[in-house]
Design a protein around this nucleic acid. Structure first.
Length: 563
RNA sequence: UGGGGUGUAGCCAAGUGGUAAGGCACCGGAUUUUGAUUCCGGCAUUCGCAGGUUCGAGUCCUGCCACCCCAGCCA
């Protein structure tokens, strides 16, 4: 089946531009993060958009770090961002830094001053805010607005030379203090900030603002379509103003789209930072986080994230995507690609009474039921095995068709067994069950055509390895935690459950970190990228399988409550 | 009381004057040695609301309503 072409308003715009031979038929985009945090799934949307368009239109996409505010930026973030983009499967055309353009940016500022389009303002921060007016009241002009060009030039040079204190002066564009668009009320272009920059060190003590830097950087790089999120819509007038006033190489078109919101999680850098630095999660790559590195550690594939970004579309309408869409993307990928294994998360000991004491034998298990090319593996079967505790009910609920006293089920790839007894401890908890097996059902089918309703997974007690398995669930209980002032109160205390003493197939301990599997009837898991080792196997649950039984149970439960 | 945006099903989303794609979710039913997968079927007489133009409107016009963004020397 051929995939239908992606259609969205940005691609439509590009199609029109191409049809009109705008930009000589060239398409150039860029992904412009500020290196002050880790990338998350919302950035992935922008990455897939920008790099995807470049790919599909034989264009280019640059990676440019918008590093104009040295305060919170660092090389660590630059490196993580590069790693994440590469892992997602994209290659940037040119690698650029806004800080590479500081000298050019400065020259352009001089040009603006000479044209009388920019001036040095000496109002204090508070005064500037006052003078700006409000949403409904126009601002008023600074008394320094009409400084002569020569004085502005001298002052701006002195600003660069470090002759003033932080905040003493700023460079402002001279536009319109009564504009209904607040961004046009003489926006600040440069501020004095004696902070050492992770790339330019102490070479500069003045730094250009985003609005001034971004458009010029785009123009320098000959970007044709500058894609950004909706909150910059009002900044577009300023983007265009700067480029119109200056003799720059090109004038890219800014197009805004809605950022991604995902149910039950947060995308805000501010909140993500708090979660990490206050220790509510283990780090930027905590598998519960929507960061790229978190999703990676959780077991998501680059393909699944790209597929997700394609499914959600690109529009100007702000919406919130259901988690199920993300989960569906990874399930679809892993269902095809992940080898099957058996793992018992909550082991219940089963003794098969009629199995010859001390005997073992080999059964053959398929690595993928639909893909024989993935091969088979031998599994050791014996008279003492573990099954999942939830696969046994002493008094079975309605529609439960797994193991219960007197009932027969199939052990996957092995034998039919029938429960003959239950052993409990002093507290009355089931600690072992007794069964008999039917030797005529080896491999899992009976010669007499007798059917069983349930098939359960198992491991041989003496041939299984112990493993730690981490179960992850949504980080928050509230669908839109970011909207809550007390979002920390809505953290899901069950978002991470660590199971030790799980029993898994022996072969699993030798798997490389990040290897992915389906643990049959449980879900998709991956060997933890950081903590997994032969001596201490650790698996993360990426996502559960779809679970119709859980749905039935839930429905039955709520029915019982209502009756 | 200003300006900029957005409204198509429970959640996304296509649709560019010719009679509402697709995905997720949900509900059936078939197949199944994973209660998985797969398959088949169902799921908007209607596009925020009210008028208007037109043979014909989700698409054009007018008015209204709802929601989001903007008053950092952040990006």
């Amino acid at each position: 089946m051929e995939k239908p072409a992606i259609s969205n308003f940005i691609r439509n715009t590009i199609d029109t531009d191409l049809a009109e031979n705008k930009n000589q038929g060239r398409v150039a985009t860029r992904f412009p993060p500020e290196p002050n945090g880790y990338l998350h799934i919302g950035h992935a949307k922008s990455i897939c958009l920008n790099f995807g368009i470049a790919q599909d239109y034989q264009g280019t996409c640059n990676l440019r770090f918008d590093d104009t505010n040295p305060e919170r930026e660092s090389l660590e973030y630059v490196q993580s961002i590069k790693d994440d983009i590469a892992w997602l499967g994209y290659q940037w055309n040119a690698l650029r830094f806004a800080s590479d353009y500081f000298e050019q940016l400065y020259d352009y500022a001089i040009e603006l001053i000479k044209q009388g389009k920019a001036y040095v303002d000496s109002l204090t921060g508070d005064e500037i805010r006052e003078y700006r007016g409000t949403l409904t009241k126009p601002g008023k002009e600074s008394p320094y607005r009409d400084r002569p060009v020569e004085e502005n030039l001298k002052l701006f040079e002195s600003m660069r030379a470090g002759k003033f204190e932080d905040g003493q002066h700023v460079l402002r564009a001279k536009i319109d203090m009564s504009s209904p668009n607040i961004n046009m009320r003489d926006p600040i272009l440069y501020r004095i900030r004696r902070v050492s920059h992770y790339r330019t060190g102490d070479r500069w003590c003045i730094y250009p603002m985003y609005d001034y830097t971004h458009c010029i950087s785009d123009a320098i790089e000959d970007i044709t379509h500058s894609l950004c999120t909706l909150e910059f819509e009002d900044n577009r007038a300023l983007y265009d103003w700067v480029l119109d006033e200056l003799d720059v190489p090109s004038h890219p078109q800014q197009i805004e789209f809605a950022r991604l919101n995902l149910e039950y999680t947060v995308m805000s850098k501010r909140i993500l930072n708090r979660l990490v630095y206050e220790g509510h999660v283990s780090g930027w790559d905590d598998p519960r986080l929507p960061t790229i590195s978190g999703l990676r550690r959780r077991g998501y594939t680059p393909e699944s994230i790209r597929d997700f970004c394609e499914r959600i579309g690109v529009t100007k309408k702000q919406g919130t995507i259901a988690m199920s869409v993300l989960e569906n993307s990874i399930r679809e990928d892993l269902d095809q690609s992940a080898p099957r294994r058996m793992a018992v998360l909550d082991p219940l000991r089963v003794v098969i009474e009629n199995y010859p004491e001390g005997q073992t034998e080999t059964v053959t298990a398929s690595n993928h039921p639909k893909n024989p090319q993935m091969g088979q593996r031998p599994l050791t079967f014996s008279g003492v095995i573990y099954i999942e505790r939830s696969d046994f009910m002493e008094t079975p609920a309605k529609k439960f068709f797994r193991l219960a006293p007197g009932r027969e089920v199939r052990l996957r790839y092995a034998y039919y067994i029938t429960c003959t007894g239950v052993i409990k401890d002093d507290q009355g908890e089931v600690i072992e069950i007794r069964c008999t097996y039917d030797p005529a059902t080896k491999g899992g089918s009976s010669a007499d055509g007798r059917k069983v309703k349930g098939t359960i997974h198992w491991v041989s007690a003496d041939h299984a390895a112990n493993a730690e398995i981490r179960l992850y669930d949504r980080l928050f209980r509230a669908p839109s935690p970011a909207a809550k002032a007390d979002f920390l109160e809505h953290l899901n205390p069950q978002s991470r459950i660590v199971l030790t003493g799980c029993k898994v197939e022996q072969g699993l301990v030798d798997m490389q970190p990040e290897a992915r599997f389906q643990f049959e009837r449980q879900g998709y898991f991956c060997a933890d990228r950081q903590d997994h080792s032969r001596g201490h196997p650790v698996f993360n649950r990426t996502v559960t399988l779809r679970d119709t039984w859980a749905k039935i149970e839930k429905t039955a439960g709520s029915l019982a409550q209502h009756s």
